[in-house]
Simulated scan of single mutants.
Amino acid sequence: MQKIVEGINAYNLSRVPALSDTWTPLEFIVKNENGDEIAGILAGLGYWNGLDIRILWVEASYRQKGIGTSLLKHVEGIAREKGATVAMLDTFDFQAEDFYLKNEYEVVGEIKNFPKGHKRIYFSKRLSK
């Protein structure tokens, strides 16, 4: 498996030079007053300084309180400071489509009827003005 990862990375970097040497994780957890984890974001910056958001989750009873937006804005701000100019992610229509639209993300693609009766949506957002 390592050879496959190294092979694609070598090819990619031979075509477009890296702006960063490694993956820089941007991962944060929110805890409630009891110390329970109630939200979190798993994201990071890759070779070309794009913010790649992998997971953003808020426990159901804490949704609609601004926690998700705060996490998203926090990570976007750090990414901007580190030179990121674009953020990207994917979600499903039954997850957080409206949330990302509200936070100024644009749909850049979708897979219809995956899973059956739903769609997978790909978003991006320019982080630089």
Rank of each mutant, 00 (worst) to 15 (best):
E27V: 12
L26M: 02
K82F: 05
G66A: 08
A79S: 03
I41K: 01
W57N: 01
Y11A: 07
L19C: 10
W48M: 03
G117C: 03
K65L: 15
M1V: 11
K112H: 12
E59D: 14
F114T: 11
K116Y: 05
E37I: 14
D90M: 10
A10P: 02
N12P: 03
Y11C: 04
N9L: 10
L51I: 07
K102V: 02
N34D: 15
I55N: 11
G83A: 06
D36H: 13
R15T: 10
P115V: 12
G68Q: 05
V30N: 05
S124E: 13
E97G: 01
K3W: 06
T22M: 09
I8Q: 11
D93I: 08
W48N: 01
N49R: 15
M1A: 13
K73I: 14
R126V: 08
P17Y: 04
A43S: 14
R120M: 09
A87M: 05
G66P: 04
K125R: 13
L89T: 02
E110Q: 07
E97A: 09
E104M: 08
K112I: 06
E106D: 10
P115W: 07
K3Y: 10
M1P: 12
L13D: 14
V58G: 10
E27A: 11
G50P: 00
D36P: 04
I78S: 01
E81H: 08
R15M: 14
E104K: 15
S14Q: 09
Q2T: 15
F94I: 00
S20Y: 08
Q2G: 13
M1W: 10
E33T: 12
D52Y: 12
A43M: 02
K129M: 06
T69I: 02
K102S: 09
T69L: 00
L45M: 07
G44M: 05
N103K: 06
W57P: 00
I55R: 12
K31E: 14
S20N: 15
A43I: 02
L72H: 04
D93L: 10
T85P: 04
G117S: 02
N49T: 11
E27D: 14
L71Y: 03
G46L: 05
F28P: 00
L101E: 11
D36M: 09
K129E: 13
G66L: 09
N32R: 03
V86T: 15
N9T: 11
K125W: 08
G46Q: 10
W57H: 04
E6Y: 11
G40T: 01
E97I: 04
W57T: 03
W57V: 07
K82R: 15
R120Q: 12
S128G: 04
G66D: 06
R15K: 15
D98M: 09
K116H: 06
Q95Y: 07
Q64N: 15
F114Y: 14
G83F: 08
N12I: 03
D36I: 12
N9G: 05
G83Y: 08
P17K: 13
I29W: 05
A96V: 00
K73Q: 14
A79T: 01
Q64V: 09
Q95S: 03
A43T: 00
L13P: 03
Y62C: 02
L42N: 11
V75M: 01
W23R: 12
M88L: 09
